[in-house]
Structure formats: C-alpha cells, structure tokens
Design a protein around this nucleic acid. Structure first.
Lengths: 222, 222
DNA sequence: TAGATTGTTAATCGATTAACAATC
DNA sequence: TAGATTGTTAATCGATTAACAATC
C-alpha cells in the first residue's frame, strides 16, 4: 500500500533528485532492480530512510526483489519534472550566465535555454552559443509570449531582487537564484537558491573544523 | 554568556553564510547595528532562530541595540573561512569549469583559482583567462607542491569519482562537487555538493506542486 | 519452504519556535 | 525610568532510524 499523499517534504524531494540520478546510472549499466539497502549504501543513507522516502511515491517495491528501476525512474522523473521540457531564460550574460546557457547538461536534462538577457548595452547583440543576448526591456514580452517557465538569475547580487521582481511581473513560474543574496518572492512563485560561493564557504568551514593533523595545518596556506 | 562550543550544526552553518552575505550588504549601506528581528525579516526566518544561531558564535549582542555589524562580520568571516585566501583548482575545462575559473565573484570572496585541468588533450594548453589548461597527470604534483586547499569537480558525471580519488590522493583538503553524481570521500576530506541540475529539479517539483490556477496550467508548455 | 526485503509503526534524535527573565 | 531586545530554557515540531509483521 502506497501513500498517494501529494505533499512531499522538501528534505525528501532533495533526496529524490539523488535517487533519480543514481538510478539513471544503474540503468545505463543494464541493472533492472535495486534494494533499499543497495541504494542506501551507494548514497550514504540508511535503508530505512530510502524506504520511508519511496513510500511517498505512488509505486511499490516487491519483497525479496526490491524496486524495479524502469518504473521507479519513470515515477521519479514525473515528480521532479524530468519528463518534460522546461523553457528557461538566463538573466545575466557574464561568465556564469554564459556557461549555463552553453552547458550541455541542462538541455540534456530537459531545461531548454531559450533566451539570455543582459542590462549591459555592450553585451546586447553578442552571441552565446546559438543565442543572441537580448536587452532587459525585452524580457517581459519574451517570457509572457513564449510561456517561459523558469528564470535563472545570474546577475550581480545588487540587481538580483530587481530582476526577480521583473521576472515575476512577466509571469515566470519559478526562479533559480545563483547569487548569494536572499531574494523575496510571493508564495506562488517558488525560488531555489544554488549559491555556489555559499557552498565554498560551507566547505571552508568544514575544512577548518577538521581535527588538525601535523601534515594538515588548520588554516589555509596563503 | 556565549557558548564557545566548537561544533556548529550543518543547518546552522548554512544559515551563517546567508547572515554573512546580508551583513555585508547592510554594511555597504553604512548600517552599524542590526536586531535579530530585522535580520530574520530580511532572510525569511524567525528572530528566535537568528538568536539561537548566533549564540553558537563567540560574540554577544547588546540588549536594546542588537548586534554590532562590524564585529559580527569579522567573526562570521572567521568561521566561514572568508578571512583568508583559499587556493582552488578546477578540474574540467568545459563551459562550467571555464566559467568558474573566470568568474570574478570567487576571487573577490577569497577563492583563488590557481589551476585548471582537463583530461582532453585537445583542451590542454588552451587559455582560460590568465590560466593555461594543464593535463590531468600534472594534478597530483601541482596540488601537493602548491598546497592547494580545494578542488572543484566540473567534469562529466561518469568521471567524478575518479577525479575525487585523485584529488584526495594528491592531498586536497576539501572538494566541491558540481556534478549530480554522489561522490564518496574518506571522512577527513569534506565534500559539498552544489548540484545545479538538482536545484532545477527541486524547482520543477515546486512549480508542479503549486495549486494550479486557470492562467497557470500545471505542466510546462512544450 | 526459508530467507530476504518490503511497508509501516513507534522510538529517537535534532532543529525550530515560543516564552520569558535578565539587562542595557 | 520604561521599553526593547538579548540569551537561554522549555515546548513543539519534523526528520531519521529502529524494529518487525507481512509477503514474495
């Protein structure tokens, strides 16, 4: 019996993305079934957590065999939106914005970058892969006419909130914020932060918190 | 009285990065003090959480005035390693790797990219900003001789574990993993995942989970 | 069949919030 | 002084883990 309960806790959703990635790797190796224990071992979790997580899905495992990978991938893909193509615009044609617009991984995973915008007149008109950088004042019409789903904010931190407001006004459905600033949105427009600098700071903290060893002095060599 | 307890829970560390970023913004605007309530409002938290978090620091606020920003920034910077320069190598000279190596934000925040490596002979020798792409077989000596602190993995997912193993063998102190694969490290080498595709999937899920409205159909237009 | 593995309930653990005395 | 705001304790909430009957 499976809970069809629609609301999945964020902590679980975050792990579902990891299950999906791992299952795709397993399937690429022609594996057809996996147990909660194997999944847990591969991802550094407990089998209890895995079974608890998967019980949120409308999908059952089978005693003694585990979970059938093809079915599990299908349902995870559906839940995480990996079963359709999402239209994405990138705001900011700096290094990060250009990298995202070019990075193959996104297109391959169903995130189709269909426009890139920048406030800098010097950048407008330049090419990024097959896209031409558009001016900011074209953003609202572009988003609403093409029914763009997701906006990625890759501008300097100081401009992040302004860009978010404009995206929301244009009818965007969700925002990925790559700046390290906190951005406020009305509840109906979800926002996820992917703050790489913050990740580096977490890492720096973890390095410092390591019990220092003779060959591992506790501050960076600079 | 402040707990000088050395171990700060990861959930708190993650918020500390946000406090630091916000405090830097406030200070840039010449503000000198902030209350837990104001901080909470700006970051979408409760004042209780803020006070609880800051109690892990060796730093006290003052009744009726709040927290003195200069002192708070200093101590947060120390805890998050933002008070020194960290030496970073980027593995993978694809779009993402090149963007990171070029992105000004990292250098500005104390993460100095001092080398970029790639397994592809066609990329070796090409320039990325002021750096020359080096071959993988030079990685171990480079890391150990220059006492590089952090390795950033920006290679295809299939190669991620192999690169991590090599970095660890070379004596790296921490790893930032940008692939969506899970990478295993021995406990002494901390690893942080900054999985951008996973963030997009979280976002896609959140968009779908939105209560659908007439003008907001529940699947992406494709 | 016997043994492995699920799904689920109950127990534990950790994180967040509420409340309030202390204090500037 | 009176009022605002801290630091901390206790209460609540949520997430993880343990345990085990059901079952293939």
């Amino acid at each position: 019996m499976t809970r069809k309960d629609n609301r999945i806790p964020p902590s679980v959703v975050r792990r579902l993305t990891r299950y999906l990635a791992h299952i795709q790797t397993l399937r690429a190796g022609r594996q057809e079934w996996v147990s909660s224990q194997d999944l847990a071992d591969s991802l550094g979790l407990t089998s209890s957590t895995v079974r608890q997580d998967l019980s949120h899905l409308d999908f059952s495992g089978i005693s003694k065999r585990g979970y059938e990978l093809e079915g599990l991938e299908t349902i995870l893909a559906r839940i995480l939106g990996a079963d359709t193509v999402w239209k994405v615009v990138v705001i900011g044609a700096g290094n990060l914005g250009r990298a995202l617009a070019t990075h193959q991984d996104f297109a391959r995973r169903g995130y189709k970058i269909c426009g890139i915008f920048d406030a800098d007149a010097g950048k407008v008109g330049t090419k990024v892969a097959s896209l031409t950088v558009r001016p900011m004042n074209r953003l609202p019409a572009f988003v609403s006419r093409r029914l763009v789903d997701i906006g990625v904010i890759a501008v300097p931190a100081a401009a992040a909130q302004r860009v978010a407001d404009l995206l929301i006004l244009s009818g965007i459905r969700g925002i990925l914020n790559l700046t390290l600033t906190h951005v406020v949105t009305p509840g109906r427009v979800p926002i996820v932060d992917a703050r790489i600098v913050a990740s580096l700071q977490e890492l720096s903290h973890a390095i410092r918190a390591q019990p220092p060893t003779p060959e591992n002095p506790s501050s960076p060599s600079s």
